[in-house]
Design a protein around this nucleic acid. Structure first.
Length: 1115
RNA sequence: GGGCGGGUAGCUCAGUUGGCCAGAGCGUUCGCUUUACACGCGAAUGGUCGCCGGUUCGAGUCCGGCCCCGCUCACCA
């Protein structure tokens, strides 16, 4: 039998956590059964974990993120949902590759650069290197799993995924293939964010902007006349310009060569200039029309083009105060291969530039992939500029400046080519990984056309209507596409999900919305080795005039056609002709296109074995690049549920139908834009595709569409009738970011990072969880002061004392409860009728409990985790421990009914607390289950479903009839009287053990009296006046006295107390009178408030008079 | 520059449609080895709710303006 002596006075988490974890696993408590959902036995509740990077171990932010998920998951499991929480990790391409490379270097082992050499020499360097990364991944995946398990995360651990495992890889192949086939993935030569250190392209969101001290360099470009190819370009003089009406030209000597001034922060890119642009509204534009500039040193002749993009300088009509207009010269150097805006300008004037620029092209790339100046990547007219070759960007910049400074516009002319230098602080993009300055760099990359309405449009239409701004609704034109109704889940409504995506807190919907409004196509190729290799094979093919693919003897052509024209081989091709223009596959064979060379990009979905070797036998080569990590992350709610083939393996069987859409995604706000968006787009796109395919194949006949529509639909290509599918999740909860005590982000380099394992060691898992939950308000950041643990030296935080103390309180309350229950084993059940006859404290406790259940439920439903934790903190500590347990001490041993209330209340509190403090509540509940005690009608406590585990037991169901306003009020009155007496006791320093006497004209009812005796240590309550010295106080407008406080009352202390009390009361009388004398108040405020104020005034006056009288007696 | 968040007790933070004298935890002070808990119990101290103006009988809460702090997007002419 358990008594207090069996349980230690302090809760020691380490004694219980591992043991209880094992019990949960043994009971298979977290394993979900999708068939219970599909059979209608239980509604689904599904969460996919935001997969932590295998780059490193989890930090406190992850602890918060996963605590929140576990709270939701455990609560819903107890509420009767079939609950699944899918765990897993993310391969984090560039981050992990970089980290492993660094580690190899620091250990003096062969690193990336060495493996690249091996690969270049024909060895298997790539394979060897990725094997190293895989070893790292195994190490950290295990560590992350251990951390999550130590935290008590109730994931379905048999279904753990990794973004590069077989199931996820299958999803990536399928997704890429479908997008490729439908033209939503394309290849393009574009400017990308290039990291010259890691030598890979980066997505826009992987670029960090940092302020940098730089300068504007104003460069002079000499003006020349156009000339035929190879002939001399005559200088343009200021005199000529003046004659053409150029404002300002007359200020220069007539016979000197004229120039235009461009301003730049990156002078070294001038080597790639192909034009100088001027705004057509610039008054100088007309005079310069048709003229050329000669790039100094390079000697390239470039045209002057007119484009609205160029900002007018203030002097020529630009808006005063506008930063750009203030510093603009009105002339913009155009370097399409090294600046995204210039790229757009260049494209607009492509023909004009190619005709007039002496290089004959509009794109001149002057850098190598490592960002040194190079003539090997698209630059031919080097001339005297060879002095720059091989220089880094920084060296080249200095050299350009010094060369310009040393030269003049024309020989013998005054003034340097460097007009002036102005210091300028501005933001420059840096790689989030290597921190190198990003170079806009021209290269071939793969893109997802996320700007297509099938992706972006459906992401926006997914938003809940009342979280959309009006403007966007108009932009999209109407209410959007009606939802598809092809659900395999009859009990779910509208899985297609238009208007069902909801953000908590709702302000984050704005971020989501505006992200999409500015969306650009997504560059998904990365020049890395760690990741999903792009499933595209490329090759060139010459189709000669005599080829007939159906009878071809040419092995290549026939072999390729065999692959491409057999649907079961799951291959799709994008073809380009010699000029790089896309061309339809069938047109390749059309007569007029024959005898040409084509570049083929063939995508294979990987299902048909043999395609890859067949293609490679034909001389095709797989793209060496890998996919952006987010491509696989975007598929996470699909891939973890087994998409596209959930029935392929037992661990994913039926998951997709049962659990997608999932219920909620919990994440931090830094992720909203990229990840949430991409998951929404992909889920809707890929599951939508399934819907339309089902309809086309005629297997799904749930929608009563007219047959004519169905016919035309099946005739159309699938991409043109693509219907949006369901959401990946309905709710998105965005939680705070954890910072240290100074508001800084936690990081390894600052040394302020906290490992959840260290908190678990110092405070316990439940304490950490409870504290994190308690901190989770609607705010965007939370601070956790970091201190080294005095014992271990590891980082911890006194913040977690809150949770530790709370757990200890729960432990001791339970210990005490158990000892009471075991001391008096006879039990009694309490019927609905009996409830009314219970003691005041019991009725009050049941009322509080019922209200607490309601509050906890509504807090969780609204993702108000702090409110949930606070509710339980107060319910346990304030109500149950401070008042209820203290109140029943004298009576509980003799009352089996009271013991039923006691036992039931603690049981219910354990259930309410279990989601946030699973270990300790499980430990208590295993004791409580064995303790004797009756039940209470109106409180339903369902037993465990699996094993003897609280985690699969039922959430408490309480009848609102137990809410008892009379008991609440009566108890509140008793509590106020106790508080008044305690105040006097404290002020007079009455020893706690000394029982005192209460004198009041009208003695309280028995129940109140009993509570006062117990809680204020009063032994006698009498209507008689005190015989000896006493102290007066006022309660409910009546004078009360306390006597037997001490052998003599300290008159000085008493005088001080009363004087202070009178002052306070006078103040509040003044305030109340002021309010009541305000004529507007009595007239316009609600009557009950006016009445209340009047009552308060009377009470305050009575209390003050009583206090004055008492003061007078003292004197 | 655009958007978002924050500024409430010494510290960390609550305060949901405007309504008693603005709350909690920690800290501080005083008293307690009260037969569950000192990771505790009882009591106390502590605030011009960033500033200015407005609406209202009444504003921490609503409106306008301003000042700080943070995040985020855009911007390398």
């Amino acid at each position: 039998m358990t008594t207090t002596t069996d349980l230690p006075k302090q809760y020691t988490p380490a004694d219980h956590e591992p043991r209880i974890w094992q019990r949960w696993l043994d009971a298979n408590a977290f394993h979900a059964d999708p068939d219970r959902v599909l059979n209608g036995e239980a509604p689904p509740y599904a969460v996919v974990i935001p997969p932590p990077n295998v780059t490193g171990a989890l930090h406190l932010g992850h602890a918060l993120n996963n605590t929140i998920q576990d709270v939701l998951v455990r609560a819903h499991r107890m509420m009767g949902y079939e609950t699944i929480w899918l765990p897993g990790t993310d391969h984090a391409g560039i981050a992990t590759q970089t980290v492993v490379d660094k580690r190899l270097k620091s250990e003096g082992k062969p690193a990336l650069v060495d493996y690249k050499k091996i690969e270049a020499e024909g060895g298997n360097g790539r394979e060897q290197f990725t094997a190293q990364v895989m070893a790292w991944k195994d190490e950290y995946e295990a560590r992350i799993t251990a951390q999550l398990q130590a935290m008590g995360c109730s994931c379905d651990w048999e279904r753990q995924r990794f973004t590069m495992d077989k199931v996820c890889a299958r999803a990536v192949r399928e997704a890429f293939f479908r997008l490729f086939k439908n033209g939503l993935i394309y290849r393009g030569k574009r400017l990308v964010n290039w990291d010259p250190v890691t030598q890979t392209a980066l997505a826009d969101d992987e670029v960090e902007m940092h302020e940098v001290d730089g300068a504007f360099y104003d460069l002079r470009y000499p003006l020349v006349h156009p000339a035929a190819k190879g002939e001399h370009h005559k200088p343009v003089t200021w005199g000529e310009l003046a004659a053409r009406g150029m404002p300002g030209a007359e200020a220069h000597p007539d016979d000197e060569q004229a120039w235009v001034t461009v301003a730049t922060t990156r002078p070294e890119t001038y080597l790639g200039d192909v034009a100088v642009a001027v705004n057509p509204r610039d008054p100088r534009a007309a005079a310069l029309r048709g003229l050329r500039c000669r790039l100094p040193i390079v000697g390239r002749i470039v045209p002057i083009i007119e484009d609205d993009y160029v900002v007018l300088p203030v002097a020529f009509g630009g808006p005063a105060g506008d930063a750009k207009a203030e510093m603009s010269t009105g002339f913009l150097k155009v370097t399409p291969a090294h600046d995204p805006n210039d790229y757009e300008i260049g494209r607009r004037h492509e023909a004009e530039i190619e005709e007039a620029c002496s290089a004959g092209t509009w794109l001149i790339n002057v850098m190598a992939p490592d960002a040194t100046i190079s003539a090997d990547h698209g630059w031919t007219d080097i001339n005297d500029a060879k002095i720059f070759l091989g220089k880094t960007r920084e060296e080249a910049r200095k050299l350009v400046i010094s060369e310009f400074k040393a030269r003049t516009v024309a020989e013998g002319q005054e003034g340097s080519l460097l007009d002036r230098t102005r210091p300028h602080r501005h933001s420059v993009g840096h790689s989030y990984r290597s921190h190198a300055v990003i170079e806009p760099y021209l290269s071939d990359q793969w893109y997802v056309k996320v700007t297509d309405d099938q992706l972006k449009g459906n992401a926006l239409r997914a938003m809940a209507p009342n979280q959309r701004s009006g403007a966007t609704l108009q932009n999209l034109g109407g209410t959007g596409v009606p939802p598809v109704t092809t659900s395999s889940l009859p009990e779910q409504e509208e899985p297609a999900g238009d208007g069902q995506l909801r953000f908590y807190p709702d302000r984050y919907s704005k971020t989501f919305e505006s992200w999409h409004e500015n969306l650009r196509d997504w560059c998904i190729s990365r020049q890395l080795w760690w990741g999903h290799r792009i499933p595209v094979w490329s090759g060139t093919l010459t189709v000669d005039a005599n080829t007939d693919p159906h009878t071809a003897t040419d092995l290549i052509v026939s072999g390729l056609w065999e692959i491409l024209h057999d649907d079961s081989r799951c291959a799709a091709a994008q073809v380009f002709d010699e000029s790089g223009e896309p061309i339809a596959l069938d047109d390749v064979l059309a007569i007029h296109h024959r005898d040409r060379t084509y570049q083929f990009f063939v995508c294979l979905d990987g299902r048909y074995q043999g395609n890859e070797t067949a293609l490679e036998d034909l001389g095709f080569v797989q793209d060496p690049d890998v996919l952006d990590t987010w491509f696989s992350s975007a598929l996470w709610p699909l891939s973890t549920l087994g998409w596209p083939d959930p029935d392929q393996s037992p661990d994913t069987r039926h998951l997709l139908d049962a659990f997608n859409p999932t219920s909620v995604l919990c994440t931090a706000r830094e992720i909203i834009t990229l990840w949430v968006s991409r998951m929404v787009m992909f889920n809707r796109y890929f599951r939508g595709a399934e819907s339309s395919e089902q309809q086309n194949s005629g297997t799904a006949d749930r929608t009563a569409r007219p047959s004519s529509a169905a016919t035309s639909e099946s005739a159309a290509p699938s991409s043109s009738r693509h219907l949006p599918g369901p959401l990946p999740f309905r709710d998105v909860f965005i939680h705070a970011m954890i910072q240290d005590g100074e508001g800084r982000k936690m990081s390894k380099s600052l040394g302020n990072g906290v490992d959840p394992m260290d908190i678990i060691a110092s405070h316990g898992s439940d304490a950490m969880r409870f504290t994190l939950c308690h901190m989770t308000t609607q705010t965007q950041d939370v601070r956790v002061p970091v201190e080294p643990d005095p014992k271990t030296g590891k980082n911890t935080s006194p913040k977690f004392d809150l949770g530790r103390n709370f757990c200890n309180k729960l432990w001791n309350a339970s210990r005490f409860t158990l000892s009471i229950l075991h001391k008096s084993p006879e039990a009694a059940d309490v019927s609905t009728a009996d409830v009314r006859t219970l003691a005041l404290a019991d009725r009050w406790m049941l009322s509080r409990l019922t209200a607490g259940v309601r509050a906890a439920e509504s807090s969780l439903a609204q993702y108000q985790f702090s409110a949930y934790a606070t509710t339980l903190y107060d319910l346990l500590w304030r109500d149950f421990c401070d008042w209820y347990l203290e109140a029943i001490k004298p009576t509980v041993a003799a009352s089996p009914q009271q013991r039923a209330v006691l036992r039931t209340t603690l049981d219910a509190i354990c259930r309410l607390l279990h989601p946030v403090a699973p270990f300790i509540t499980e430990a208590i509940h295993e004791q409580l289950r064995q303790a004797p005690g009756g039940s209470i009608d109106g409180i339903e406590l369902t037993p465990p479903r699996k094993g003897d585990t609280l985690c699969t037991a039922g959430w408490p169901i309480t009848d609102d009839a137990l809410i008892d306003p009379e008991a609440d009020a009566a108890f509140e009155r008793a509590r106020a009287l106790v508080a008044a007496i305690r105040e006097v006791r404290a002020q007079h320093q009455v020893p706690p053990k000394r029982a005192i006497t209460l004198h009041c004209a009208e003695t309280p009812d028995d129940e109140t009296a009993a509570l006062v005796r117990t809680l204020a240590n009063v032994d006698t309550i009498t209507a008689d006046a005190p015989a000896g010295p006493s102290v007066a106080f006022s309660f409910e407008q009546r004078e009360h006295k306390l006597s037997n406080l001490a052998d003599a009352v300290d008159a000085g202390a008493e005088r001080e107390r009363l004087t202070k009390q009178i002052a306070e009361l006078d103040k509040s009388i003044g305030a109340l009178e002021g309010r009541l004398n305000n004529p507007g108040y009595a007239e316009r405020a609600p009557a009950h408030l006016v009445e209340q104020s009047r009552a308060q005034l009377e009470q305050a006056k009575a209390d003050r008079d009583a206090a004055r009288a008492a003061l007078d007696t003292l004197a």
